[in-house]
Simulated scan of single mutants.
Amino acid sequence: MHDLQELHAFVTVMEHGSLAPSAQHLGVAKSTLSRRISQLEARLGQPLLRRQANRLIPTEAGLLFHGYCQQILALAEQSQRRLDELREEVSGQVTVQVHQTLARAWLARHMDTFLARHPGIQLTLGHPAQPPTGPDEEAIWVWVGPLTECGLRQETLGRLTQGLYAHPDYLARHGTPSHPRELASHAWVDLLGLTQTGLPLQHPHHGDYHFTPPHSRLRVDQSTLHIDAIARGQGLGVIPRWLAAGREAHHPGELSLCLPDWQPPSLAVSLLYPYGRQSRKVTALLDFLRQRVPSAWRGEESPAIADPPSAALAPPQRSLHH
């Protein structure tokens, strides 16, 4: 078993080239440093350093051992750091900025579990209208959709596949489209103006179709309001299938998937956090969020049967349809 003080002494002498500055750097007497080097050479059974003029230079064994020595010290430091982290309490203030699509449908219910698991945590939840534009050292972000470089690490948690939905009563009155070109004759419910510049649709056999939705008489800025409007029969709109499955689980028959073979673009769900070493509270939260990703986001199960969204998406009572 190697003595870490002896290994540190050897690496330091390799860096400085002589005993005096090495001893000063380590804060020990020159005689103490010399003794540690001698003890290490005795343990190894061969010299590691030899004197040349006023400097100590490595022998062949010293050059070979130096690389291993650095690895041993690095592993020792890493293990100590991880052990120190285990002693660090998961407590303090943390902030999560979450896209409004996931605020109620996914994050809120899981944060109750996280707070129960870590009583020392004080949590702030926000749902800003725009993604981060620069480094944010105070918050973790969960975002849906495209992102630009903002100085934060961007980790993809999964993707939300989307579909075209309407209420069955609306389709009974206005007809069910059989091709994207028929969508132009339908009322359109727009979320945040996201489809007003056009909606690309992809078919596995018939290629791509670029649909330009008609002017929307109803525009909303929240996913819950968007789904509510479509479920009330106001028209067609694009909804993540995972959210639609959750709505249908609580209120069957409110949403009907149109043109199932024509696929709108999927949306990336991204986790954003600062670069570098994280505090234990942030590491605990990041790991927790990764563990709570629904299987449907990873494409592991059918969206209709995968972990559904929270009942928070459902209205307090069933709507009346005309």
Rank of each mutant, 00 (worst) to 15 (best):
Q154E: 02
Q154N: 06
Q154I: 13
Q154C: 12
Q154R: 10
Q154P: 01
Q154Y: 03
Q154V: 13
E155K: 08
T156Q: 13
T156A: 10
T156D: 08
L157C: 04
L157D: 05
L157G: 03
L157H: 03
L157T: 08
L157E: 05
G158C: 02
G158S: 03
R159S: 11
R159A: 12
L160T: 03
L160I: 05
L160Y: 01
L160M: 11
L160K: 01
L160W: 04
T161I: 09
T161N: 09
T161M: 07
T161D: 08
Q162C: 15
Q162E: 13
Q162Y: 07
G163P: 09
G163V: 02
G163L: 08
G163R: 04
L164N: 03
L164Y: 09
L164Q: 04
L164H: 06
L164R: 06
Y165P: 02
Y165V: 06
Y165G: 02
Y165H: 10
A166Y: 05
A166F: 05
H167T: 11
H167C: 11
H167S: 12
H167L: 10
H167M: 09
H167K: 10
P168E: 05
P168A: 10
P168C: 04
P168L: 09
P168K: 05
P168D: 06
D169R: 12
D169L: 10
D169P: 00
D169C: 10
D169Y: 10
D169W: 10
D169Q: 14
D169M: 04
Y170H: 14
Y170C: 08
Y170D: 05
Y170K: 06
Y170N: 09
Y170M: 07
Y170V: 08
Y170Q: 07
Y170R: 08
Y170E: 07
L171S: 12
L171A: 15
L171Q: 11
A172H: 13
A172I: 12
A172C: 11
A172N: 14
A172W: 13
R173Q: 13
R173W: 06
R173V: 02
R173T: 04
R173M: 09
H174R: 13
H174Y: 13
H174G: 03
H174E: 06
H174S: 04
H174V: 05
H174W: 12
G175D: 07
G175R: 02
G175K: 04
G175A: 06
G175I: 01
T176A: 14
T176Q: 15
T176D: 11
T176Y: 09
P177E: 02
P177I: 02
P177K: 03
P177L: 03
P177F: 02
P177M: 08
P177C: 05
P177H: 04
S178G: 14
S178L: 14
S178E: 15
S178Q: 15
S178H: 14
S178M: 11
S178D: 14
S178P: 02
H179L: 01
H179K: 06
P180W: 00
P180C: 01
P180Y: 00
P180M: 00
P180G: 00
P180T: 00
R181W: 03
R181V: 02
R181F: 01
E182T: 03
E182L: 05
E182P: 01
E182K: 07
L183K: 00
L183H: 00
A184T: 15
A184N: 14
A184Y: 12
S185K: 15
S185Q: 15
S185R: 15
S185W: 14
S185D: 15
S185E: 15
S185C: 12
